[in-house]
Nucleic acid binder design. Structure first.
Lengths: 236, 236
DNA sequence: TGATCTTTTGTACGATAGTACAAATCACAT
DNA sequence: ATGTGATTTGTACTATCGTACAAAAGATCA
């Protein structure tokens, strides 16, 4: 009883389009936007360079479509998990649940294949580092709402911490998350094989625990405002 | 009594060479390696494209020279600060001093101009995200020793925390540090102007406090090993 | 001043980039 | 089977890339 798609529908044979998207995602996430040519993508997808133009018009259009494909599902999942986390009674547990609601979809937002979420998050990290214009616009539009929702939720769990501090610490969380996906092998190397940087579950746990502790740190201006040294010169 | 440089010395007129290095550093750090052309760099430095080839042979050579210029001074400064930090008696203060010894030179390693340290660290962040080969080699060679030294020092201050956890948390520190330099405007935006992401001193304090708290978090396997969930499917 | 070395300029070359477009091919409704 | 619209292919165009290299310009010292 599977409905046959009619010819009026855009994708009669979605395989190639999907293959191009997947290949582009992987290559962009690994090498950056400018280092990857349309020909590279086509070759990796087993397609003709012209097909990329046909499906996505331009290279920017291809990147745009990758974002469109992932942003919705990922933020939806984050919203669901955040709503559930807000209902946790115990404050400590709630904070952890909130952080987890932020982190887990970044690793596993399963809009498609296994590892798709991590791949897309890594892509976002790389685009962010490269200052990609297309990505910058989408991110500010799509993710700031989510970020504010999480910051608000965290603030509710930690009312004694100034919002500014929470913004900074959430920012650090995102940076740590990005970096874990960009260079997981560094963790394996520095731990001399004791830890596997590519293990998503392990990374998530480490990240959640570290972030919860960071968020719970005393407010900055209550710690030692006098300690702030002027940025030191190179002399000791 | 200033010694006149003889013609045997390589740099009779270092201005242009320095200008090219500075321009390349700025452009690479902002836009990534592949997005910036040699002509862009030459134009920004007010030089001729041929001059870049003359001084640095290749584009990779230019990047290499940027690293050579900064790595030494920065790691030297880190070593000095780390040695001083190790002498701090109070364990809590020592831990903070160690983290500060890692973070401060990344923002201010003053091998040259103001902000040079932050610019170079941002460059490293971007090269790391792009998976740049030249950078990868240098980083593994030059920075792993430093990283291990810091991990060891932290471990001495926190002997009850497994080394694996410390590696992860130090990794998060570097990721947060990188990200703070890559997109400082995000902090300003999310805090609605209450915080200035470009303020190095503020970023350092926030980063140090958050990291110290994260490092002091209970060891992972002592927390709730049973809590580890399998990476969830997309279904709620 | 003129010889010599360093640095800068200008130009050019081959490779590859993104994209356009016509022709060929495919899938399906009739 | 055949026509029709969707897709894929092949090719070509222009722009720009990194780099090479000869000539011009600048600096230094006998």
């Amino acid at each position: 009883m599977i409905r046959k798609p009619t010819s009026k529908e855009t994708a009669r044979k979605p395989n190639m389009r999907e293959a191009i998207l997947a290949a582009a995602e992987e290559l962009f996430a690994t090498n950056g936007f400018n280092a990857v040519s349309v020909r590279d993508i086509a070759h990796a997808a087993g397609a003709n360079p012209g097909s990329v133009t046909y499906h996505f018009k331009t290279k920017d259009g291809l990147l745009l479509e990758i974002y469109r494909r992932h942003c919705g599902p990922m933020n939806l999942r984050r919203s669901e998990l955040l709503a559930a986390a807000r209902r946790v009674r115990d404050l400590q547990d709630r904070l952890e649940a909130i952080v987890r609601a932020y982190v887990v979809p970044a690793f596993t937002s399963g809009s498609d294949l296994a590892g798709g979420g991590a791949r897309f998050t890594r892509l976002r990290a790389v685009m962010s580092a490269e200052g990609n214009e297309v990505a910058r616009k989408i991110i500010a539009q799509t993710f700031d709402d989510t970020s504010h929702a999480f910051i608000d939720a965290i603030h509710e769990s930690l009312p004694h911490i100034p919002r500014t501090d929470i913004v900074w610490r959430s920012h650090f969380l995102l940076g740590a998350l990005y970096y874990s996906l960009v260079t997981p092998e560094r963790v394996s190397r520095l731990s001399r094989g004791e830890a596997d940087g590519s293990d998503a579950a392990g990374a998530i746990e480490q990240l959640v625990q570290a972030t919860v502790a960071a968020l719970q740190a005393p407010a900055l201006d209550q710690v030692a405002p006098a300690r702030r040294r002027p940025v030191a010169s190179s002399k000791t």
